[in-house]
Design a protein around this nucleic acid. Sequence first.
DNA 1: GGATGTGAACGACTTCACAGCG
DNA 2: CGCTGTGAAGTCGTTCACATCC
Lengths: 221, 221
Amino acid sequence: MSRTDKEIDEATDAKPSRASAARLSLYLRCLENWRRAGQATVSSGNIAETLGLSDAQVRKDIGYLGSPGQPGVGYKVPELIRAIREGLGINREWRTVLVGVGNLARALLRYQGFREQGFEIVGLFDADPQKLGLRVDGLTVQPMSALPAVVAGADAELALMTVPAEAAQDVADALVASGVRGILNFAPAVLRLPSKVRLVNVDLAIQLEQLAFQVQLGNIP
Amino acid sequence: MSRTDKEIDEATDAKPSRASAARLSLYLRCLENWRRAGQATVSSGNIAETLGLSDAQVRKDIGYLGSPGQPGVGYKVPELIRAIREGLGINREWRTVLVGVGNLARALLRYQGFREQGFEIVGLFDADPQKLGLRVDGLTVQPMSALPAVVAGADAELALMTVPAEAAQDVADALVASGVRGILNFAPAVLRLPSKVRLVNVDLAIQLEQLAFQVQLGNIP
DNA sequence: GGATGTGAACGACTTCACAGCG
DNA sequence: CGCTGTGAAGTCGTTCACATCC
């Protein structure tokens, strides 16, 4: 009987949905700005206004976190930041490897936003022998053969793939074999992965196509 | 009264929704591969299997295009490609400017996928005087002051923004003032634009956060 | 048989509306 | 009074199922 109660409890505390999680990341950006500015509390209306959403939606999203929130006042900024980071699973360090050291990789490595959010890059890899030994941003480019040992040794769970489309599937297979659990793929290729491994694609051509589509839609109404 | 009929007609031919448009871009990638391979027809099942979707969804998406499709056979590859490109509004050239010539910009310029899809970059701009005159991929970096003339002269409608977050809003304002209609923004900043101008954000930290979230979700069930 | 095209059922997400609280 | 939290209603998108056609 106590069992039944427990199950009802667990069913009640819903996790953030995909759609909601994407917005929570955005809330986090705003909140970090406001914290830097020294603001103590925010209301759902503040966030909604900034991002062009409805206040009800913001409250619903935050509601999934089981977070605090004072009626008549709003949310305490640092507390809400902590709650979102916990809800998204980024309240810890995620070790990450990067495969394919081209311009895009250099741009990613330079961008400090990753580290600030707890993503640490623990290895650079490239199939091109000419690039081996190259030092980029404090890390040395290693051959693909070193991948399994580094992933295992550093307990890396995520990977950034910035390789040409032709190489993408092979690299992905190698990453999976090394034990990586999630891949952020920038190659314009359709990858097949075991269902245990999560994949997020960032295809720049597709983003441009979506933009063109939206602009074209805007023309008509 | 004929007015009413017309309205019903227009309400009937639905345009692809946002969600559907994102998938159509993916279909396009597969189809182009298959065309290169010389395949004449595809079925909704083929596409669905490749991308891990349901065949019904693929048919619904294609249905928005008012495209052909032969029962018992499938869709003719070249015809479907044309229909998708038309539906997405990319069956023409989109002239595009790029602001912020860093590593990310170089990666984008090198990536031939844009040009193949009809996106032509007609101008490079940077606020850094040291970069002025630099030639990258056949284009010369120009000062921000030249932006309005170039946008107007080339009739550019889209812009790629690869600038630091601090500069993002100012650059966006300048782009809007120049007459650009859509911005693909890579800066991790929340931009405010007039509603006439479309915005697509690609925030790499957010993508990584979403990946971490999905990996974390996968751990539990 | 093998696919398409599509209403209808279903499910997920969003907005509404308001009770409750500081 | 202002703002949160949340059922209820509504909207949007996906899946099902089947009539239809080659």
